[in-house]
């Protein structure tokens, strides 16, 4: 099944997003928290994200949800550090982190393909709050 990695500046925030989104999961899937820094501050660390992607992948690929700024840059950098084979099946979703995580996790948990999970995450961008 497609794995999910959540990258927020705050590890706790990422944790809450994961727990909240897992409520919608139909089956257990690999969702890895790659938020925060190794010394538990606000921030991101490309090496933490790289390790999380490797853990999240079972061969089906990984969708990464990010918040802002350094999350995006560190996630891009992490993907460049991966070996080429894995690189090809990792995508950063262009989506808000909470809504994107909910969509991606529920989609991944029914065994959907990498492409479907990514699309589902990015559809969350259109979710209207009017």
């Amino acid at each position: 099944m497609v794995g999910i990695v959540v990258v927020s500046h705050s590890r706790k925030l990422a944790q809450e997003i994961i727990e909240f989104s897992m409520e919608m999961a139909q089956m257990d899937i690999r969702v890895i928290n790659a938020g925060g820094t190794s010394d538990e501050r606000f921030g991101t660390d490309a090496t933490i994200i790289m390790n999380a992607i490797q853990k999240a992948d079972d061969g089906s690929g990984v969708v990464v949800l990010v918040d802002l700024g350094s999350s995006i840059m560190s996630a891009n950098m992490a993907i460049e550090f991966l070996d080429e084979d894995l690189q090809k099946r990792v995508f950063i979703a262009d989506a808000p982190i909470v809504e994107g995580a909910i969509s991606a996790i529920s989609q991944a948990s029914i065994g959907s393909s990498l492409e479907e999970v990514k699309k589902s995450a990015e559809r969350a961008k259109e979710y209207s709050k009017k």
Partner: peptide
């Protein structure tokens, strides 16, 4: 580069790291 990437935390980390 690797020292900066894994310790800075903010946007300046991946930027100076790169």
């Amino acid at each position: 580069a690797m020292a900066l990437i894994s310790t800075v935390g903010g946007a300046s980390g991946p930027l100076y790291g790169t």
